[in-house]
């Protein structure tokens, strides 16, 4: 019975994915054979060709993707820590907020495309600059959402702590931090795919390993490497989706009490 329900639940998703691939394949054929568009395979390659290439170069994609992912993950973690600390400081003092907030907002106005070579020029290390850019992208949405979470603790809940003569750090530990967890996770969910994209972007500027490196290389080699290029793009997208899902899973484990995770079925 349970398997049947599971099956029923996943059927629409499965049908949707298969349908999409079929439509893709048909469009690709149409461009190539019917319209005879020049460089048709660069515009929309055959799925089966992509799959052949995948079988052949899958391990390369995986190892390069792993390099990108680990660098993005380190930067992401760093950015999350910095963002959270900044949010705590801002919540403690209006003065800190007024001093740092305009710069935090301003920092997000700088195009990453321009910033990446500057960072690389300063640190002269492709690994480190990937980490820095990923952290740079992450800290802002995290800081913003955590700050809101810290501030939005129920005033009555704060009064309750006050009535216990709770120490300020107790109020943070037992009330404001848990109350800010949903904010932290929405910040992380926004930042995770962006951190991956940021890391790939830095790799395009010049690195020795990573998804961005083989993406650029296959783009330069021209139409003969078209399928591999497409695969790197798809791998990049999948990496972003994977990071997002990973955060979602962690969120469910860390804060299962959130309203969106509550089962609607009658428990009692």
């Amino acid at each position: 019975m349970k398997n049947y329900i599971q099956l029923k639940r996943w059927t629409p998703t499965l049908v949707w994915i298969v349908g999409l691939l079929v439509i893709w394949e048909i469009c690709s054929w149409f461009l190539l054979q019917v319209l005879q568009v020049p460089l048709a395979q660069s515009k929309l390659p055959y799925i089966h060709e992509l799959m052949y290439t995948m079988l052949e170069y899958g391990s390369t994609l995986f190892s390069e993707g792993w390099v990108t992912f680990t660098n993005a993950a380190i930067g992401f973690a760093l950015g999350a820590v910095v963002g959270s600390l900044l949010a705590i400081l801002m919540s403690l003092s209006k003065w800190v907020e007024q001093l740092t907030f305009p710069y935090a907002v301003g920092s997000q106005m700088i195009p990453i495309l321009g910033l990446a070579p500057i960072v690389y020029g300063i640190v002269h290390d492709d690994q480190l600059s990937r980490i820095i850019i990923a952290a740079y992208i992450t800290f802002f949405p995290v800081a913003l959402n955590v700050l809101r979470g810290l501030r939005c603790a129920d005033p009555a809940a704060v009064e309750l702590m006050h009535s216990y003569a709770a120490k300020p750090w107790s109020v943070y530990l037992k009330l404001r931090f848990p109350a800010a967890l949903p904010g932290l996770f929405s910040g992380l969910k926004i930042a995770a795919p962006l951190a991956v994209t940021g890391a790939i972007l830095v790799e395009l500027m010049g690195a020795t390993k990573g998804l961005g490196v083989i993406m650029l290389r296959n783009l330069y080699y021209g139409p003969s490497h078209n399928y591999m290029f497409w695969l790197t793009v798809i791998a990049g997208a999948l990496l972003g989706i994977f990071s997002y899902l990973l955060i979602t899973i962690i969120e469910r484990i860390v804060s299962p009490w959130q309203p969106e995770f509550r089962s609607t079925g009658g428990d009692e």
Partner: peptide
């Protein structure tokens, strides 16, 4: 009296911590 933790308070809403 508050600092000596002499009060117990019940508000209009339960104000329980969700987590």
């Amino acid at each position: 009296a508050r600092l000596a933790q002499k009060y117990g308070i019940v508000f209009q809403s339960p104000v329980l911590y969700d987590w």
